[in-house]
Design a protein around this nucleic acid. Structure first.
Lengths: 346, 346
DNA sequence: CTCAAAATGAGTTGCGTACCTCAAAACACC
DNA sequence: GGTGTTTTGAGGTACGCAACTCATTTTGAG
């Protein structure tokens, strides 16, 4: 009737006895310190495996003394999504300090590869882990690899750099997100035919590029009556997004759909309103105070949402697990894509 | 440019000095042990507050010595959703044993209040925490309260008993889930009018009752052309669900919609197929191997999903936080309602 | 003021690991 | 066989807290 899910609680001492070696040797093996014969290493590891021994994480944490420091490298400027991530990290502060973890926010211009790379290089050595909203660019990739080589655990957040040796990516599958956006725009436009506009922050941000890719994929294959206009770049800024979109709306009277890939949503909405074009099907990202209002007003038709709280917490948990050498609960840290419309606003 | 989110790392000794008392007194206050004047208590608490002191969780965990034991009281019988919860708990086993936590599964007949209550009473004293899929019944409520009084932390899982003194509920808002189901059935039925059937496990399970309530609410207010038939009870068993539904389908030729509130989905699907009525809009719960297939086959039209992995992990985390006296990250532990249709099967 | 009860201080032990030192043993090489 | 090097053992200290004992001080009631 009752079935237990955990092993018994052995200690290092038990493993030492099992393997017929001293505590010191087990310690050397566990932390792959030098000075142990390969044969002995194997014997110790066998004993660990055999008993599926797990070091007591609390004891390990206590013994190491120093606190762990993590840095979150995030875009400077007023990006609501990023502000939410910060806010959720703030809510964790009791949790963090009970574990003697410190999390520092580093604001930088993530749109400029050299600036971002320099910000990353500057962190080297000071931190146990770094979470970064990363532009996919060779110099950024190099900076990430340097951090990894220096022993720092690195996770990419929201936007990935898969060609780097980062340990983990915390964020959604952006191609799938783009596909979802495409399907939504297509379905919501309905029978009408016409043009579809795309506003992105930068095509250098991998998340944006991937979303655009997925979006175009769906548009091409499933909605041949809609033609997609060249991508506008608004650098996730309201003013800039508004300007470029306003100009486009002026030139094309037959725009029926709009996909806003990143931030700058306020500017996009303003351009639509000012042009009297709120009939345009408008799909964007993230549920914020602003997008919530736009959805309720009917200016925006759907938001593709990734839970920022989940991303913030997942990034911390993953960095911590990496630093401790614990396995990552992949299922837990996976970020899902949510479709939010007026009727199911959370 | 960099902003830190955590306090400095004080220790109990620092608090003792601050408050002008000894370590022993701080310890007494922290664990509300007797023998401290109210005035002194206040002084110590003030010092703790003032420095937003957090005891080092690793040190506390190490010092208490004994491992924590949690029990999960779950329905016996082959309920796929519950099996998934068990499976996800299994995936956590390394995580659990690194923290010296043991989780035991206790299978019982959650549909029989006295049996369930007895199972709960039997756990008293042996466990630090209990997660229970609970029937809302006075004797179950009493059993939960007894556990709480004995110092055991109790969370209700999937189905709540809000009138009890359980510490937390891990599960979705079932009224909202029922409303969502109602909206889906209504929209997917479209212009047709006719009758709508409901199959539930038991109306005594609060989750089922609440879903039905929400469902009826939406049907009444938004879909007046659809009339809801009396609820069938299938006790979450395939055979029984099939029988009761088959009989109903025989009596009513104009059934256009069906809401399966709990498990027994296989039986429900079989009744529909055997009666040649797969045109009926069928909305159910949970994404399992079975419902996935039914969705792909078009037998089922939508599934309301709550992530079982998330529920399992949240229950463990909440029990652990409660046992340690840590705050609960409510945002993190909240379970969301997902709508899953053929096109967005995860 | 006296005396018992209540409150507090001072101290100890142990939890399981990390990290360190130093000495002893085993080994490889010539 | 002797040398130097590598490997291993033995042991200690520290981490921050829980939980305990026992002595001492303070308090309040009479």
């Amino acid at each position: 009737m009752a079935e237990t899910l955990t092993a018994t609680a052995l200690t290092l001492k038990d493993i030492a006895r099992e393997a017929g070696v001293s505590l010191a040797t087990v310690d050397r093996v566990l932390h792959n310190r030098p000075g142990v014969r390969p044969d002995t290493v194997r014997r110790v590891q066998a004993a660990i495996e055999r008993n599926s021994f797990q070091p007591h994480v609390a004891a390990a944490e206590l013994a190491r003394g120093r606190a762990r420091r993590f840095a979150f490298v995030m875009p400077s400027g007023p990006n609501p999504f990023m502000q939410q991530i910060e806010a959720y990290l703030g809510e964790m502060s009791a949790w963090l300090s009970a574990r003697r973890l410190s999390v520092e926010m580093v604001a930088t211009d993530v749109f400029d590869p050299s600036v971002l790379a320099a910000s990353l290089e500057a962190l080297s050595g000071d931190y146990d882990g770094v979470a970064v909203v990363a532009l996919d660019h060779p110099s950024v990739r190099a900076a990430i690899n340097d951090l990894v080589d220096a022993g720092t655990k690195v996770v990419t957040l929201v936007s990935d750099v898969p060609s780097s040796r980062r340990h983990h990516y915390v964020g959604i599958d952006n191609i799938a997100a783009g596909r979802t956006a495409g399907a939504l725009v297509g379905r919501l436009v309905g029978q009408r035919s016409g043009k579809v506009a795309i506003v992105a922050g930068s095509q250098g941000l991998r998340d944006h590029a991937e979303r655009i890719f997925g979006f175009n994929q769906v548009m091409a294959s499933e909605f041949p009556d809609l033609s997609v206009l060249p991508v506008l770049e608004g650098r996730d800024e309201d003013d800039r997004s508004e300007q470029v979109l306003a100009r486009l709306l002026g030139r094309h009277a037959d725009i029926v759909g709009l996909y806003n890939v990143g931030a700058g949503t306020q500017g996009v909405a303003k351009a639509l309103s000012d042009a009297g074009r709120i009939d345009v099907v408008f799909v964007g990202h993230d549920v914020t105070v602003l997008t919530r209002r736009l959805l309720l007003q009917g200016v925006m038709d759907a938001a593709i949402s990734q839970n920022p709280g989940h991303e913030a917490r997942a990034a911390v948990r993953v960095l911590l697990a990496l630093a401790r050498g614990e396995p990552i609960l992949r299922e837990q840290e996976k970020i899902r894509i949510d479709i939010v419309m007026r009727d199911n606003l959370p």
